[in-house]
């Protein structure tokens, strides 16, 4: 019996060692490419909001991690800062609406240094297909209605959906999704407007895996 046990243990152990080694080798080989991919993916979204003409710095690394879950929805959210020759030219804040119809809606809000919205994009969501997913720019131009808007006060009555008396449409059959998006964007915009200087002057501190912020915390 002892012999069988030894034999089994050794064989299984050998397989484990081989398998782990193989994986480690593969990981070492692909690590760079994976990071480049992730970076490229983020840059693609960033660049639609902040075109290359608006910055000459490395957006990916000029980044601050904010810890304002009350406003940005998650414990940590990055802010990417665009500068031309060191002068602030634009800002992209990741923000999360916690109260979507089916959970969190992750967005990227881009602003000018003056606090005017340059654009909003939804990065990830689980809203009802065909209904709530009209917040995606590919499906509906609704999200573009934020472009060029600015908040007048913290509780600006225009920054609500039309049903609540605001200026943003809701979709037929769905009120909750646009309401969540509008509220999150409003919070973020007001936050950015009021703390613009601090945001640009903070030191960069978010080198690492941007993927972790996509982790759904619902």
């Amino acid at each position: 019996m002892l012999k069988t046990m030894q034999k089994n243990g050794v064989i299984l152990g050998t397989f484990a060692v081989l398998a782990t080694t193989l994986i480690i080798i593969a990981q070492l080989l692909t690590a760079d490419r994976i990071e480049a991919q992730q970076r490229q993916e983020l840059m693609r979204t960033l660049n639609t909001l902040i075109p290359a003409t608006l910055h000459d710095n490395d957006l990916y690394s000029d980044c601050v991690l904010l810890q304002r879950p009350d406003i940005l929805g998650l414990a940590e959210q990055p802010v990417y800062r665009a500068r031309i020759e060191g002068v602030p030219s634009a800002l992209a804040i990741r923000t999360t609406a916690p109260d979507g119809y089916s959970g969190q809606i992750h967005m990227l809000v881009a602003l000018t240094p003056q606090g005017v919205v340059k654009g909003v994009r939804v990065l990830q969501h689980r809203e009802t297909p065909g209904l709530g997913d009209k917040i995606e720019v590919e499906r509906h131009p609704w999200i573009l209605s934020f472009d060029g808007q600015r908040m007048r006060s913290e509780n600006d009555a225009r920054w609500t959906v039309r049903r609540d008396g605001g200026m943003f449409d809701q979709f037929t059959g769905a009120t909750i999704t646009p309401r969540a998006v509008v509220n999150a964007v409003a919070r973020t915009t007001w936050f950015a407007q009021s703390e613009m200087d601090a945001l640009f002057s903070a030191p960069s501190n978010c080198l690492g895996d941007p993927e972790q912020w996509f982790e759904d915390q619902s």
């Binding site: 009802t128 065909g130 209904l131 979709f171 037929t172 059959g173 769905a174």
Partner: peptide
């Protein structure tokens, strides 16, 4: 209801 929410809530 889940396929045509718009029509079904009008």
């Amino acid at each position: 209801l889940i396929s045509f929410p718009a029509q079904m809530t009008s």
